[in-house]
Design a protein around this nucleic acid. Sequence first.
DNA 1: CTGAAAGCGCTAACAT
DNA 2: ATGTTAGCGCTTTCAG
Lengths: 343, 343
Amino acid sequence: MKSNPPAKKPTIREVARVAGVSSSTVSHVLSGKRPISPAVCKRVRRVVDRLGYRAHATAMHLAQRRTGQLGLVVREVQSSVTGALLEHMEAACRGAGYKMLLGIAHDDADLAVAYLGEFASGLADGVLNLVPGISVDRAKATCPGVPVLTYLRPHPDSPVLFDKKAATGLMMEHLWGLGHRRIALLWVPDLAPEQDRDPKELGYRDFYAQRGQEVDERLILRLEDGEDLRPMAEAAVDMGATALFATSDLRAAELLRWAHETGRRVPEDLSVAGFDDAPIAAALVPSLTTVPFPLPDLAEKTVRALVDRIEGRPPRAQELLPPRLLIRQSTGKIPPSPTEKRP
Amino acid sequence: MKSNPPAKKPTIREVARVAGVSSSTVSHVLSGKRPISPAVCKRVRRVVDRLGYRAHATAMHLAQRRTGQLGLVVREVQSSVTGALLEHMEAACRGAGYKMLLGIAHDDADLAVAYLGEFASGLADGVLNLVPGISVDRAKATCPGVPVLTYLRPHPDSPVLFDKKAATGLMMEHLWGLGHRRIALLWVPDLAPEQDRDPKELGYRDFYAQRGQEVDERLILRLEDGEDLRPMAEAAVDMGATALFATSDLRAAELLRWAHETGRRVPEDLSVAGFDDAPIAAALVPSLTTVPFPLPDLAEKTVRALVDRIEGRPPRAQELLPPRLLIRQSTGKIPPSPTEKRP
DNA sequence: CTGAAAGCGCTAACAT
DNA sequence: ATGTTAGCGCTTTCAG
C-alpha cells in the first residue's frame, strides 16, 4: 500500500534538502565514514526511506575511483565445467567484497577483447580473462593500467595452476596398480596459447617412460572435438587395451555407453576412467573413476590474487594444486585373460 | 616492442592538450556526433593511439545518463537450460546494442534482490529478472524508476510466454495417435510465484478431459527434486502405462536408463517422451522425442521488449509461443499386447 | 559534529 | 568547424 510516485529517482541533494542538512552529511550517514549525531542520523535515514533514495552506483564509482566490481570474460557458460566454475567465481568475488560482471564472448575473439577493454576502462577494478583463445599477453595489452589475470595458464601471471600432468600420472598409477599394462589414452587436445604440448599427453608418456617402457603410439588416440569416439575405442581394445582413460568425463560417459552397447562389462571386462568430476560422473552406471578438477580452490585463489593486486598487497607465490583421485566403480582389476577368450 | 609507461590512464583532457584542441573536440572525434575537419580528426586520432586513450566508461555513463548495459539476474548457470538461455540472452542484448551484466544469486533471495537493486541504481539501463523465486512485483519494487521485466512468468509484465499447457497437450496427442491410452506423467512441480497450478499438469488433465475420459490419478507421478524416479516408473508400468512422459529431458534420460537396465526396449515395449530439448536429448539412445523449449525466441523477444521500454517505444502485445514437437526414436506404436505376455 | 566547495572524467548545450 | 561552460550524482578535502 505504498504511494506510487512516477518513480523519478531522488538525488542525494534532494534528500539533503528535505532533511535540512548538507549532501555531505547524507553521504556520511550512509557510508558511516564519519561520526554523525544520532538525531541527524535518524532524520536523514527517515527521509532516505521515505523518498526511496538509493545512491547512484555509477556516480559513486566515479567519485570514489573504485567500482567494487570484477569483470570476468568467458567463452561460454553451457558446459558443466564453466557453469560450476562461474558459480564458484561468483562466490569468491562476493567473499572478497566485489561484485561480478560477466561477459560472454562466444567464439568471437574480438568480442572477448571488447569485453576486456570495456571492463578495464572504468567498469571494473580488476579483470579476469577466462577465454581459452586469449593469451595472457593479449589480455594484458587490452587492459592497460588495470590489474588483469588470466585463469589457469602455464604462465607466471596465473596465480594458481592445476597439475594436469601429475593428475594424469596419478590415474595411470591407479590403473597400473590394478594390473593394467596396456592403457589407452583418449585424448582431445586442448592447448592454451601459452603452451605447445598438452600436459595430459605428457603425463601419459612420462608415466611409461619412468617405468622404462616404450609407449605404444597406437594407444594414444587423438580425437577431434565433436568426433565419434567409438571407432577409436574399438581400435584400442583390438590393440589389447584393458583400460581406457578419457581426458574428460563427457568422453568417458560416451565410452561407458559404447561399452554397454557392445556388451562389454565395466569394470569386469574393461576399465574406464575420466577427468574433471563433472556432475554426471557420479550418476553414471557404473559411477566413474575420475580426477576431480579443483574448481572451488582454483576460483577462490585466482580471485584472491586479483583482489590482492587491486588492493596493493604483495603477490603470493604461484601455486600448483596437486591432483587427487576419485575412485569409483568404473575401474577394476585387469580381467584374467583379456585377449585369449577366443578358442 | 611497445614502450611500457607505468600505465597511468590518460584522460580526455590530456589528449586534448597534446593534440592542441578542446576536450569537446576530442569527444566528438570519438563519437562522430558532429562533423570535424579531417585534419583535426587525424591529429586527434594519432594522439589517442599514441597515448592509448580509452574513454572512462563510468564517466561516460554518468554524463550520458545511459550505460548501454542490461542487468540480468539468474539463480544459477549450471543447468544446460540456463546456460543455453544465457548465451541467447547475451546474443540478444548485443543485437540490441547493449552489453550484458550478469548477477548469479545462487539460492539466496537477498542476494538476488541486491543484484537487482544494484543494477537498477545506475549500473544498467534496464533489468531482467530470471530468478524463479523472485516475483514480478518484488522485482519491480526493487528497481523503482528503471524498466524491469521478469522472464517467463504468467503475468502481463512478461512480454513473451511459452504455452507449456498446449505443449503438454501436443505430446499427449502424439502419444495418443500412436495408440497409447494409458500415459503416465512423471512430473516435478515447478511453480512460479505467480501461479498456483503447474501448466504441465493442467495440460495432462485437460487432454483426458477433452476426450471425456476420467484421469487415472495413479498415472500422475509427482516427483521431488532429487528423487529417484525408478520406483515411480515401475509403478506406472505395473499400472498398465505404455508411455511415460517426463516433464524434462533429464528425467526422461533417467527413464531411458531405467528401461535399459530392466530390459525394456524403447520404443518397442515402452514409449518415453521428454520436455525441453536439452543438448543430451538428441545424443541419447534412442534419441528422445521431446518438446523443444523455444529459448532463442524467448530470449530475443524478452530482451527486445525490455529495450523497447528503455528506448520509449510502445509495448507490443504479450506473445504466447506455440509448442512444436520433435519426434525422434523414443516414442512408437503401442505394443500389441502390453500386459498379456505372461502366459 | 557539520557545511561549502572542489572535483571524478566525460558529454552536451550554448556560443562563436 | 571548434571552443567554453555547465553539469551528471556523488565523495572528499578543507574549514569551522
